[in-house]
Amino acid sequence: MSRVPSPPPPAEMSSGPVAESWCYTQIKVVKFSYMWTINNFSFCREEMGEVIKSSTFSSGANDKLKWCLRVNPKGLDEESKDYLSLYLLLVSCPKSEVRAKFKFSILNAKGEETKAMESQRAYRFVQGKDWGFKKFIRRDFLLDEANGLLPDDKLTLFCEVSVVQDSVNISGQNTMNMVKVPECRLADELGGLWENSRFTDCCLCVAGQEFQAHKAILAARSPVFSAMFEHEMEESKKNRVEINDVEPEVFKEMMCFIYTGKAPNLDKMADDLLAAADKYALERLKVMCEDALCSNLSVENAAEILILADLHSADQLKTQAVDFINYHASDVLETSGWKSMVVSHPHLVAEAYRSLASAQCPFLGPPRKRLKQS
């Protein structure tokens, strides 16, 4: 649940008159999402009104509101027999009622949201009550392989729920002597030191190019640089560091992050930047690179990204790559990247197969709970 924001200063709310007192009302909304995959969808019983329910879910471990999704594969009634019906059901509720908006969509073979439908307002739910769409999607369109909505005969539904909580009022009075504290510009100011090479005390040599930097900042941000300058190493004695395995453009992006906490060109060089972040123990930059690479996972590059993640101990990226390969196994196994990995990294192939087997055979063990970014 997000923290209630402070109200904007009255002088910034309007260029008009300023009242002596004010009130700011925040209506709290808890948002969460749920993904439900139905394997072997074409084998569902086709009687009209037949119901399939998901397991229950909530916004978190401490949330007492429990929900589930309900599907009628062949419609709810005679009117909707040519459609799939989809509903959000409130299973248990400690209150007399709650209000919530919802959005349903289908994830296609690429994991993209399609055929989205959402409620136009927050509906009133009581325990045992459901709301949804009797005519969510035509069955003939859903079952047509050309539309790519049932890869490997799996129907994957994605649901986003927004639950309306209580409202909170914050009130106060205006004073004539309003003090406005300026925003912190530390990142910009440190970035200026790097860009202008002011007050530098060490030189970093990268592929024949020299960059002036500040030992204190490098040591504070990177345990690797800290070790170089702290001990009686040649880098500490000469205040000069030779860097041979990072390209200059990648190095500059890494230094921008060290000084400012930002990497504006990360998406263009996420793979190389991940390697640099791993070498210099820049954990936050490493996770930022993992996130960017996750966003660009595809059938063509899944094997290469899995190898990269394994090489640099990028655990979150590795998990996402394995899950992606499992979901698109029939396509990924035909790529040149996968065939190369079979020869060069057989242990990763074995890991992917083990994960695929456990996903398809849940009876082999208890269900695993899916539970950071600093």
Rank of each mutant, 00 (worst) to 15 (best):
R370D: 05
Y34W: 02
E232S: 15
V349H: 15
P7E: 12
R368W: 10
L89H: 11
F257V: 05
V250A: 01
R284M: 09
L297F: 10
K135H: 15
A11D: 13
V4R: 11
N244W: 11
A275V: 07
P8E: 04
I170T: 01
M288F: 08
G191E: 08
M254K: 00
K64V: 09
E242G: 02
V91G: 12
V126E: 02
F136Y: 10
P264Q: 10
F133D: 08
A216D: 03
P366T: 14
A276D: 03
E183T: 04
L89T: 07
D291E: 07
P223S: 14
I52N: 02
C44I: 04
S96L: 14
N296P: 14
E334A: 12
V4K: 10
S226G: 09
N40E: 03
A292N: 06
A11F: 09
V343D: 09
A309V: 05
S59F: 08
L371N: 15
Q165F: 03
M178P: 01
V299S: 08
E50N: 04
Q320S: 07
H231P: 11
E97M: 10
W22Q: 01
S58I: 03
E118C: 07
M254W: 10
S330A: 13
S85H: 11
K110V: 15
K262Q: 02
A146K: 07
D130H: 08
E113D: 02
R198H: 15
K101R: 12
L333Y: 09
D271V: 09
Q316H: 06
F324A: 05
P367G: 14
V168K: 12
S85A: 13
V4F: 02
R70Q: 10
S236L: 07
M1C: 00
V164A: 12
Q209Y: 09
A303V: 11
M48Q: 02
K110P: 02
S6H: 01
E210G: 14
S355L: 05
V51P: 13
T200S: 14
L89K: 14
V224F: 13
C159Q: 01
W194K: 11
A321I: 09
D153A: 06
F229K: 13
H345C: 08
N72R: 07
H214R: 00
P151W: 10
F199N: 14
H345K: 06
L317R: 00
V29K: 07
F136L: 10
L76V: 14
M233P: 14
S358A: 03
K339A: 06
T319C: 06
L308P: 01
E234V: 14
K215R: 11
R370F: 08
D82K: 08
P248L: 04
S355T: 06
S298Y: 06
E145R: 09
L84V: 06
M254P: 00
Q373D: 13
P367C: 15
D140A: 07
A292R: 12
E79Q: 14
Y87P: 00
R99H: 08
H345Q: 01
K74A: 09
L356C: 03
A314T: 06
K238Q: 04
P7H: 07
A116P: 03
F125D: 01
K95F: 15
D201Q: 01
G192E: 13
K215D: 08
N265E: 02
L293F: 05
K135M: 13
K74F: 12
E300Y: 05
K74R: 11
P362L: 10
G111E: 08
Q373A: 11
V241H: 03
R138S: 07
T25D: 00
D166W: 14
D323E: 11
K101F: 15
S298T: 14
C202I: 15
S96W: 15
P7R: 10
P73H: 07
P367H: 08
L86W: 15
E160P: 00
E160W: 05
K318R: 04
L308I: 01
V4A: 00
F158Q: 14
I325H: 01
P366A: 13
D272K: 04
A359R: 01
T260L: 06
Y259G: 01
M288K: 01
A275T: 07
K279M: 04
A146Y: 15
Q316Y: 10
I307N: 10
A350S: 04
Q209E: 13
N177C: 02
S313F: 11
Y87T: 13
V91K: 13
V224S: 15
E183F: 02
D63H: 15
D153N: 07
F32T: 09
S59A: 04
R354M: 08
P7D: 08
S15A: 11
E97Y: 15
F225T: 01
G16Y: 08
E12H: 08
V29C: 08
N296A: 06
V4W: 12
L266H: 01
L142S: 06
P264A: 10
L90D: 03
T156E: 14
P94W: 14
Q360A: 11
K339H: 08
D315A: 06
D310W: 05
F136G: 01
V250F: 05
M178C: 07
A19H: 07
I38Q: 06
S313T: 14
A357V: 03
C361L: 14
E20K: 05
V332D: 00
E97F: 11
L76D: 13
M117L: 13
G148R: 07
R99D: 14
T56R: 01
G261P: 00
L273N: 00
G337N: 03
S374H: 14
P151K: 01
F324L: 01
I217H: 06
A227G: 14
N147E: 07
W131S: 00
A11Y: 01
H328N: 04
P151E: 09
S96K: 03
K31A: 05
S236G: 01
E234I: 15
G111N: 11
L89N: 15
K95V: 06
M48R: 02
I325F: 08
A352K: 00
P10G: 11
P10A: 02
M254N: 00
Q316I: 03
R138G: 09
P9G: 04
F324M: 10
A292S: 03
C256D: 05
F363V: 13
F363C: 14
H231E: 15
V163Y: 10
A302H: 00
V4L: 01
T25C: 05
P182K: 11
A314K: 11
Y87L: 09
K134V: 04
L285P: 01
I137L: 13
N244I: 02
E79P: 13
K31E: 03
A19R: 11
A122K: 12
V164L: 08
I243W: 09
K237N: 01
G172E: 02
I38Y: 06
A220V: 03
S80T: 07
M288V: 02
G261D: 04
F229M: 15
V91L: 07
T114A: 12
D323H: 05
L348E: 01
S58Q: 06
W338I: 00
S105C: 15
D272G: 06
N196W: 15
E249Y: 01
M228C: 13
C256G: 03
H231S: 14
R284F: 08
K28R: 13
W67N: 00
V349T: 02
K103M: 12
S330P: 06
P73Q: 08
V206R: 14
V322Y: 11
S92A: 10
S226Y: 15
E97V: 14
F158N: 07
H345G: 01
D278E: 02
D144I: 03
S105E: 14
K339G: 12
A276S: 04
L155N: 08
E334I: 09
S96C: 15
S344L: 07
C184Y: 05
V224R: 15
I106T: 12
F136W: 06
S162E: 15
V342N: 08
R45F: 06
R99C: 12
K268Y: 05
S15G: 06
K154W: 08
D152N: 09
V18L: 04
W22F: 04
D63M: 06
L356P: 01
P7C: 14
M1N: 00
E97R: 11
V250S: 07
A219Y: 15
I217Y: 14
A216S: 02
